[in-house]
Amino acid sequence: MTRLFSADRDTVNYPESGATARRPLPAGYNHLEYRVRIGHGRPDLETAGAAVTTLRAHRASGMRVATDREGPLLPGRRVEVAIGVGPLRVTAPCQVIWTAYEPDRVGFAYGTLKGHPECGEESFVVDMDADGGVWFTVTAFSRPGCWYTRLAGPAVPVLQRAYARLLGHTLRRLVRARPTPER
């Protein structure tokens, strides 16, 4: 996935950068909001938050992920997610737009770059409510960015929702597999 580092992908390919951190989401896009409970308590929040912000959740869900540098996700960092094999591989170059490393909320959003099959932004956030419930939320706005996503039409939002659900199941599995200290 060497295309990640291409100089012609310096800016996001949509004007509403950062909109997943605000409401309402911009008009003229398909919107996605998916929220699922994945655990309970601070250890589950920390496990899930680390899995999201290191892209482990994406990798564990079957995606190939490359980044332009190691370390924690920070705004400006490049990420490329790919699925498929050989000529059937679809790559999605993105840039991290915002991050949240807060006591009860951890996550990030990335925006699409030139060459991504969509135009828009997607956030992945783990938060803990007042009762200790740990939740995973995917928020996105997107529209077709190339001929094959335009051709796919209404199938694309269905696939995006399915991927959000897969990430939720993956995070729940990662949280449950977390080693617990002996008492």
Score class of each variant (00 low, 15 high):
residue 160 Q to T: 09
residue 90 V to W: 05
residue 109 A to L: 06
residue 119 C to M: 12
residue 150 R to E: 11
residue 162 A to N: 10
residue 155 A to C: 11
residue 105 R to V: 05
residue 83 I to C: 04
residue 154 P to F: 07
residue 135 W to M: 06
residue 151 L to Q: 09
residue 84 G to A: 11
residue 81 V to P: 00
residue 168 G to D: 07
residue 172 R to S: 14
residue 125 V to E: 11
residue 87 P to K: 08
residue 97 I to W: 00
residue 90 V to I: 15
residue 116 H to D: 04
residue 144 P to F: 02
residue 178 R to F: 01
residue 129 D to R: 10
residue 115 G to V: 05
residue 93 P to R: 00
residue 130 A to R: 14
residue 104 D to E: 15
residue 170 T to K: 04
residue 108 F to A: 07
residue 176 R to Y: 03
residue 99 T to K: 01
residue 101 Y to R: 14
residue 159 L to C: 11
residue 170 T to G: 07
residue 145 G to E: 02
residue 173 R to V: 01
residue 156 V to T: 09
residue 145 G to P: 05
residue 100 A to W: 12
residue 112 T to F: 02
residue 120 G to D: 06
residue 120 G to F: 05
residue 150 R to N: 06
residue 118 E to R: 02
residue 163 Y to I: 05
residue 170 T to A: 07
residue 129 D to M: 11
residue 178 R to K: 13
residue 103 P to V: 07
residue 116 H to S: 02
residue 147 W to R: 13
residue 161 R to M: 08
residue 148 Y to I: 08
residue 110 Y to K: 06
residue 163 Y to Q: 13
residue 117 P to H: 05
residue 139 T to G: 06
residue 124 F to E: 02
residue 96 V to I: 15
residue 179 P to W: 03
residue 95 Q to I: 12
residue 176 R to L: 13
residue 177 A to G: 11
residue 178 R to T: 15
residue 121 E to I: 07
residue 112 T to R: 02
residue 136 F to Y: 15
residue 159 L to G: 14
residue 162 A to P: 00
residue 180 T to A: 14
residue 116 H to C: 03
residue 112 T to C: 11
residue 160 Q to W: 04
residue 150 R to A: 13
residue 141 F to G: 04
residue 142 S to P: 03
residue 135 W to K: 04
residue 128 M to F: 00
residue 148 Y to F: 15
residue 157 P to W: 03
residue 164 A to P: 04
residue 152 A to G: 12
residue 171 L to T: 08
residue 82 A to H: 01
residue 146 C to D: 13
residue 106 V to T: 14
residue 125 V to Q: 05
residue 136 F to E: 05
residue 121 E to M: 08
residue 153 G to L: 07
residue 88 L to H: 12
residue 148 Y to S: 11
residue 94 C to N: 13
